[in-house]
Design a protein around this nucleic acid. Structure first.
Length: 204
DNA sequence: AGCGGGATTTTCT
DNA sequence: GAAAATCCCGCTT
């Protein structure tokens, strides 16, 4: 039971929701998420990975699932920041996004690549024997490696079995900005970001 | 090293 | 009915 102190201010008692830093536009949050950590519990084991490549998608952007408004599929994108949006694509693959921005604004950041921080044996098994950068250097690859599927759509990233832990903002000199991958609308928008010189980045 | 096709389901027109 | 925020394999240079 937490008792209320007479003297302590409210801000020292209540935990700060760090996900409020994931503000719109989605491009802002996409840069903010570089270098941040996912902690995934799977098969009773813990795997930590570092985000090294992201893409921004928001409702002002023709390439975004949220562009044409809320639907059954995109509903989670219009919720508050800090939840997972998982979609299925090309008949085979899942892709993972972090919902960003205020509730009511449809925005999310696609996680395109992560760098494993230990326990790579588990990832290798889930990836059918692949190893090294092939474990997680693509949006569907990292979902397979981390066991992310539609069951985790709408998951709160403050909770097990998949937590997002924010790291300090990466310096702008360490971030490369480019066009997004695999889209046909809004091709020239520079909303893809990755950690400079990181070998896990999917497309250089 | 680069190109082409197949896998296979959700979503919207 | 077609396209899709992809990946992998096999064939050709």
């Amino acid at each position: 039971m937490i008792s209320k102190s007479k003297n302590a201010s409210l801000s020292t008692i209540l935990p700060v929701d760090s996900f409020k830093e994931l503000t719109a536009p989605a491009s802002n949050a996409a840069k903010r998420l570089l270098d941040c950590i996912f902690e995934r519990e799977i098969d009773g084991e813990l795997v930590r990975v570092r985000i090294v490549e992201t893409e921004a998608y928001d409702q002002t952007d023709a390439a975004s699932h949220s562009y044409k408004g809320r639907s059954q599929r995109t509903d989670i994108m219009f919720g508050p920041a800090g939840y997972l949006y998982v979609y299925f694509t090309y008949g085979m693959h899942y892709c993972a996004n972090v919902v960003v921005g205020e509730a009511g604004y449809g925005a999310a950041v696609l996680i395109r690549a992560v760098e494993p921080l230990g326990n790579e044996g588990l990832l290798e098994r889930r990836r059918g024997g692949k190893s090294g950068i092939e474990l997680t250097n693509g949006p569907a690859k990292l979902c397979q490696a981390l066991g992310i599927n539609k069951q985790l759509n709408g998951h709160n990233l403050r909770e097990a079995p998949l937590r997002l832990v924010l790291a300090p903002q990466l310096s702008s000199e360490a971030i490369v900005t480019t066009r997004r991958v695999g889209i046909s609308q809004a091709k020239d928008v520079l909303w893809r970001f990755y950690v400079k010189d990181n070998s896990f980045v999917s497309v250089k």
